[in-house]
Design a protein around this nucleic acid. Structure first.
Lengths: 150, 150
DNA sequence: TCTATTTAATATAAAATTGTATTAATTCTG
DNA sequence: CAGAATTAATACAATTTTATATTAAATAGA
C-alpha cells in the first residue's frame, strides 16, 4: 500500500473541503458522516493537517475546519507530506540508511526515478482539479456516494 | 512506504540468492547473518517465496533455499507479488472498492498511470541485473556491507 | 541407528497502525 | 451566565505487522 489509511482519509477529507469551497467552516461530524469515516479518527488526522497549516479550525457553534488556501493552491503532495511524512520520497527501496547517489544500493537509480514519478504526479495535482472533476462527472468519494453534498 | 518490510527483506534475500548463483542450497541462517535480518522472520518470508514456487527448499545438512529459476528470469515484480500481493497494482488510491474505468474515483486516471509506472519498473528489472551490478560496483545490500560473501 | 543440521509449523510477544471513548477547552446563542 | 456545539487532548482498545521462541519433521553422515 503506497499511502497509509490515515493519509487516504486525509486526502478524501481534503477533497471534500475543496469541493465545499472556502466560505465557511465545515464541522468534522458532517464530514465523517458523509465520508463514512470514524469521527474521532478523522478528527485526529485533521488535527495534523491543522498543525501543518493546511487547515484552519474553529471551535464552537458554526465551527469546524476549512482549507487555509484555495484548493487550486493545495496539491496532493501537501497532504501526503503532512500525514505520511517526507520519508516516502527519500527512503531507499531496500530500506538501507543513507542510500543515495554517493552510497547507492543496487535499486537506487531505478527506484529514484520511479519515486520521482510518484512525487511529480502528487505535486502537479491540486485538490481543486480533482474536486471539480468529481463534482462535474459525479464521481465517487465514498464506497457508494459522490459529491452530492457539495 | 511503498513496500512492506517483509517484502523488502524478501527482495534483499532474493538478490542474495541471485548473487550466489544456482549451484547449491544456501542455508537461511547464513543469509540472515549476512543480511542482518532476524532468522525466524526471514524464514517465514522465504517460506512464502517457496510456496509461490520462486524458491526451492531442502531440509537437513547441506540444505537451504535456492532460486528455482536463474536470476535473469526472475523480476522484482515476481517477488513483490508473492509477498505483498497483487492488491498494490489494482487498488484505488482513495481505497474505494471496485474503482476502475467504469466507476472511477477522481484520482483514478492519474493514479492508474503512476501505478503502471511502478509496476513496469519492477517488471523490467531482474534479480540478476541488480545482483550483477551490486557485485561489480560493490554496492550495499545491508546497512554497512556489500556483496563480499557472494 | 544416532546425532547434527536444516526447513516447517506453531505459538507467543512486541510494536505500529487503526479505531473508540472520555474529558477538557473554546465559542456561539439565548 | 447557562447551555449547546464544536475542536483538542488524552486515554484506551483492537487489529495488523514485525519479531522471537519452541517444537516438529526431514535428511545427511558417521
Amino acid at each position: 500500500m503506497l499511502l497509509s489509511k490515515s493519509c487516504v482519509y486525509g486526502l478524501r477529507a481534503a477533497l471534500y473541503l475543496s469541493a465545499k469551497g472556502p466560505k465557511s467552516f465545515t464541522p468534522i461530524r458532517s464530514m465523517s458522516d458523509n465520508l463514512e469515516i470514524s469521527f474521532h479518527f478523522l478528527t485526529k488526522i485533521l488535527q495534523q493537517l491543522t498543525a501543518e497549516g493546511i487547515l484552519e479550525s474553529y471551535k464552537g457553534p458554526n465551527g469546524g475546519v476549512k482549507l487555509t488556501q484555495p484548493g487550486e493552491k493545495v496539491t496532493l503532495l501537501d497532504i501526503v507530506r503532512a500525514i505520511d511524512g517526507e520519508a516516502m520520497f527519500t527512503e531507499c527501496a531496500l530500506g538501507l540508511p543513507g542510500c543515495g547517489v554517493m552510497k547507492p544500493c543496487p535499486m537506487h537509480d531505478k527506484w529514484a526515478e520511479t519515486r520521482d514519478g510518484i512525487k511529480e504526479m502528487l505535486e502537479t495535482t491540486t485538490l481543486k482539479e480533482l474536486s471539480s472533476k468529481g463534482k462535474k462527472l459525479n464521481l465517487r468519494i465514498t464506497a457508494d456516494g459522490g459529491f452530492e453534498w457539495a
